[in-house]
């Protein structure tokens, strides 16, 4: 291809805005004051209900138990060793929490993306069907989280039809069970956090301009390639939000592990914190574990954002 003959003048840029008049400057200032005024309530709220509790938590994690004191009595100190104990004693449930949360996030991503894609892209022309599926997707939100997990315990119980059916087709051995296993805990996490994964992805895919897929097809991309090169990258904001909304609460969750797990090899860090606080009444240890959990999540999320999140998508 050779260069064309004519060179066209660059399009004119819009004129720069004229200098602000005095009245406009005053209005501008007034707007600034209103802005500050609007920020204050939110700022105070954050200070009271986020910054202060976190400070209290951090302080508590360094308290010490005076020798010979009663259960539940601690004094302010700078007991760094609380963290050493916490990590050496409870590294196992801590690692397991992130492992379970990670697996549950991946599973929820696979299931959630498929569902969101089906509703938002494939069934876009069938408004009614898409709406019904969306309602079904959100409906579980209307009943309690704990209740739903209890229900799963019933469904997956040793005498339940699921286990019996699985035993019958020999997927499970004769004495095999589902409750009180890691599989049940991960399945519970996946199930319970699925809407948090699906809805952001749905929101992303719903905005996808399907004409872009036609354009990709027109430019020799097979449907599979068009998905990989166009649909998937354009839904990344949803995937990103969904994975964070799933992974973060799932790693701190203890309901699923408590109801669907056992006390030996499925306990998660949330369960440990719960028992430190309310049963053993070891506040500094519970606070130290909470802090570790928070910091690790923060580091993991930051790594994740650095790896995938900084790319400007538009």
């Amino acid at each position: 291809m050779s260069a064309p003959a004519v060179r066209r003048p660059e399009p004119k840029r819009p004129e720069p805005a004229a200098e602000l008049s005095a009245t406009e400057r005053r209005a501008e200032k007034a707007r600034g004051r209103i802005g500050v005024g609007l920020i204050v309530p939110g700022f105070v709220y954050l200070l009271l209900f986020f910054a202060a509790p976190v400070f209290v938590l951090l302080a508590m994690s360094l308290y010490a138990k005076p020798p010979g004191a009663e259960t539940g009595v601690f004094v302010p100190a700078f007991e760094i060793s609380n963290y050493a104990v916490a990590l050496s004693q409870y590294w196992e449930p801590l690692v397991r929490s992130f492992l379970f949360a990670g697996i549950a996030t991946v599973l929820a991503l696979l299931i959630g993306y498929t569902m969101a894609y089906l509703v938002a892209v494939r069934l876009r022309q069938h408004k009614l069907l898409a709406s019904i599926l969306l309602v079904i997707l959100i409906a579980p939100f209307f009943s309690s989280f704990v209740l739903r997990t209890q229900a799963w315990k019933q469904i997956l119980a040793d005498e339940g039809f699921v286990v019996e059916a699985l035993r019958f087709v020999a997927i499970l051995p004769e004495d095999g069970r589902l409750t009180a296993t890691s599989i049940a805990v991960v399945a519970g996490l996946t199930y319970n956090f699925l809407p948090f994964m699906t809805l952001p992805i749905y929101a992303s895919l719903e905005r996808l301009d399907t004409r872009l897929l036609e354009a990709a097809g027109d430019l020799y991309a097979s449907p599979m390639t068009a998905f990989r090169r166009v649909t998937l990258p354009l839904s990344m904001p949803g995937v990103f939000a969904g994975t964070l909304l799933t992974f973060i609460p799932a790693s701190g969750d203890y309901i699923n592990a408590a109801i669907l797990g056992n006390n030996r090899d499925t306990s998660m860090i949330g369960q440990v914190i719960d028992s430190r606080f309310f049963q053993i009444v070891d506040y500094p240890m519970a606070a130290a574990l909470s802090t570790v959990l928070m910091v690790v999540i923060l580091i993991l999320v930051m790594l994740y954002i650095r790896k995938f999140g900084t790319k400007e998508l538009f």
Binding site: D209, R211, L212, Y220, A226, R229, V230, L234, L313, F314
Partner: peptide, 27 residues
């Protein structure tokens, strides 16, 4: 469509918003 020796300039342009101009053209 992806096997046909035709290309289209769409009314909506349908440029890929997540790619640079060059990547769009090289697609």
């Amino acid at each position: 469509s992806h096997r046909r020796p035709v290309n289209t300039v769409f009314q909506s342009y349908a440029l890929f918003p997540h790619m640079s101009v060059l990547d769009n053209v090289a697609f």
